[in-house]
Design a binder for these strands. Structure first.
Length: 674
DNA sequence: GGTAACTGGGTTTTT
DNA sequence: CCCAGTTACC
């Protein structure tokens, strides 16, 4: 960290006013690219300069990346622990608090954290006892993942089940009774097994802060609380912030309600707008000078930006005019893929490296065709967002095996590892688990009894895995344990997966990453709270001379910027997504998402609209439909774009007669057999 | 009884 | 392309 005075020197007037504000609660309304992070870092530095102890400053963010980034800039690299700002995601800080006082929360010292996929697995095992499997009186029941989603929505928005169902899951309304019973069961299961899901982390922290005895102690740990991206808080997180700073003293929130894009996980920008009601003495400072994008890009962004009463904001450009965004109308998605490749290469020729360009998509599958085209042309790319690495089947297998080693009472983990073996289905797995009495002491010792449940051929292969896991549990270091787990899975994975070698290579990197943790348990919690985005993420930074085009979902691109940005699929149904169009709030969020996408571009913005869409349907003929240009590009927005029509695709060739057959016939005449 | 292999329908975004 | 339900096989 540099000298605080120098940090302040580098700020503009608004930023400096925010960084050095001395009154009550402060809301910094920071538009995209207005130096929000730098201002927050400067405020932390200024607070230290005012004599606030770093360890009494709490910085809350939504991603680990944002937390790491700010902490690195806000404090000296060589400072000792007592001299460090406390910072992390809401979930990570909650975990830290609960771990430190696990006995107060009636949790085992080494409680496990369920990621959303784990929660869905638990729902899956519980739901058949509630009539939520198969078709119930002709209706399809909600899937396990949907049950978990509905549960989380209720909890994170503090909304009654009936209201959540009516607003977001109307087709599940008939199952309200069964879902209520399932959720009660779900909570019981978690408590019995000492498990905590993502929502629980926040709920438990909030409960502690609200407790008359524990609350003052926890809140008294900090003099200043800085919250990044406040528009993304859910009801529970808003409560946590309020409980941390009940009178608003020492509270700084940074946010932009026009960039709220996480409603689907319970966030609501209404909490940001409600701040002035919570704190009568709230001061709002606007940051609107944009240091990221060219004027030509911002003109479009300002038209798209939704404005909300009392929090209006328009960005002004600090970086010169630049070129107008180019809207490329394409005949279809294949043309769009070719157009993107052509423009990526043209920009590359003109001196913009591939890694300085990004293709941002609404949904991970929007780039499928493009990825094929890129591969065909040999253009390297990396993709962020979409399916997470930890959701790949083999990674889940490895994590389950690791969980057995870390905690042999983990029911779900046993279930998964046993089922990995060919010939073991749900029933046999359950029997083995019951015989092992995994909740009791020394479950591994009961394997000889459990193997009686299996045919002898299976008993041998499964037995080998179980014995190796038992040995792994006795190894001293995390690295050795991880290696032993990998060895235990070698046989069953080889039998299960055709591409086992590739998957094993992934897992070796995972094992290497886990080896850095003090314990296997810590490694698992880290992976749950901060899953690697891709396998390549684990391998550390790519070599410097490697150059990749970035493909990312808009959600994953939040907070980032690139000199050149390409936005494909700008047609109604894709952008905005038709899943979001059932409610007015959903449509508004899609508009904010589009605003976030547009404001990622520094110099050049390319927009692509394929007007003929292809629908994949097995069994039926391929179908096409003509799409509407996205409704967000209305006349006012289009006035700030340059429009071109992409070259039409090659003409369709429909020969009157089969061509190959006619050639064959001609040739056959040469041998005289025609 | 239990598991694997097949078939048909639906598909967002992520701490 | 993944998941859930159905069928066919051990």
């Amino acid at each position: 960290m540099t000298d605080p005075a120098a940090v302040l020197e580098a700020l503009n007037d608004d930023q400096r006013r925010a960084a050095t504000y001395t009154g009550g609660p402060l809301l910094i309304l920071a538009g995209a690219g207005t130096g929000k992070t730098g201002t927050l870092v400067a405020r932390a530095a200024w607070l230290r300069g005012q004599g606030v102890q770093p360890s009494r400053i709490l910085l809350l963010t939504f991603t680990r990346r944002a937390a790491d980034d700010m902490l690195a800039r806000a404090q000296p690299a060589d400072g000792n622990a007592a001299d460090r700002i406390v910072g992390g995601t809401f979930h990570a800080i909650a975990h830290r608090v609960i771990r430190a006082y696990s006995e107060a929360f009636a949790l085992p010292a080494e409680f496990s954290v369920l990621d959303p996929a784990d929660s869905a697995d638990v729902m899956d095992t519980l739901r058949d006892s509630h009539g939520l499997v198969g078709t119930d009186s002709g209706r399809r029941t909600p899937r396990a993942a949907t049950c978990a989603e509905i549960y989380s929505r209720c909890v994170s928005t503090s909304t009654a089940l009936a209201d959540v169902l009516r607003a977001g899951y109307p087709w599940c309304v008939p199952f309200a009774g069964q879902l209520a019973a399932l959720f009660t069961d779900f909570i019981g299961y978690k408590r019995r097994h000492g498990l905590v899901d993502f929502d629980d982390l926040l709920l438990l922290w909030r409960a502690a802060l609200a407790d008359p005895a524990a609350g003052p102690a926890l809140r008294g740990l900090f003099d200043a609380v800085l919250v990044d991206e406040y528009q993304d808080v859910n009801a529970v997180q808003a409560d946590i912030v309020r409980l941390l700073r009940p009178d608003g003293a020492g509270l700084t929130c940074v946010g932009d309600d026009a960039q709220a894009i996480y409603a689907f996980r319970g966030a609501d920008p209404a909490h940001l707008r409600a701040l002035s009601g919570t704190y009568a003495d709230l001061t709002v400072i606007r940051l609107s000078r944009n240091y990221r994008s060219r004027h030509a890009v911002l003109r479009l962004a300002n038209v798209i930006r939704p404005q909300y009463d009392g929090l209006e904001l328009a960005l002004t450009a600090e970086r010169g005019h630049g070129q107008r965004p180019l809207l490329v109308r394409c005949h279809d998605e294949a043309t769009q893929a070719r157009e993107i490749c052509a423009r990526v290469l043209a920009e590359h020729e003109a001196g913009t490296r591939l890694c300085e360009q990004a293709v941002l998509v609404r949904s991970a599958n929007h780039s499928d065709l493009l990825e094929l085209e890129l591969a065909g042309r040999g253009i390297p790319s990396v993709k962020y967002g979409g399916l997470r690495f930890t959701e790949a089947a083999h990674v889940k297998d490895f994590l389950a095996a690791a969980r057995i080693v870390a905690n042999p009472a983990d029911d779900l983990a046993w279930f998964r590892v046993l089922r990995l073996h060919e010939g073991i289905g749900p029933v046999l797995a359950r029997r083995v688990i019951d015989t092992l009495q995994i909740a009791g002491p020394q479950p591994f010792a009961r394997w000889p009894a459990a193997e009686q449940e299996l045919p002898s051929r299976l008993a041998t292969t499964v037995g080998a895995t179980v014995r190796q896991l038992a040995l792994a549990a006795d190894l001293p270091s995390t690295a050795e344990r991880a290696a032993a787990i990998l060895a235990a899975l070698h046989e069953p994975m080889g039998a299960r997966y055709a591409d086992a070698a590739i998957r094993r290579a992934d897992l070796e990197r995972l094992a290497d990453a886990a080896a850095g943790s003090p314990s296997l348990h810590d490694a698992l919690v880290q992976l749950a709270l901060d899953p690697p985005v891709s396998a390549s993420d684990l391998a550390g930074r790519p070599r410097l001379d490697d150059d990749y085009l970035v493909i990312s979902t808009v959600h994953s691109a939040k907070g980032l910027e690139w000199p050149v940005v390409h936005l494909p699929q700008l047609v109604d149904g894709a952008v905005p997504s038709d899943m979001a169009l059932t409610t007015a709030a959903g449509l508004e969020e899609e508009q904010r998402l589009f605003y976030v996408a547009v404001t990622r571009a520094r110099d050049r913005l390319f927009l692509y609209a394929p007007l003929r869409m292809h629908h994949h349907r097995r069994g039926a003929d391929d179908r096409h439909s003509y799409a509407q240009l996205t409704r967000f590009l209305d006349a006012a927005a289009l006035a700030h774009c340059e429009l071109i029509q992409a070259a039409p695709p090659r003409p369709v060739l429909v020969p009157a007669a089969p061509l190959a057959a006619s050639v064959d016939r001609d040739l056959a005449s040469l041998w005289g057999t025609g």
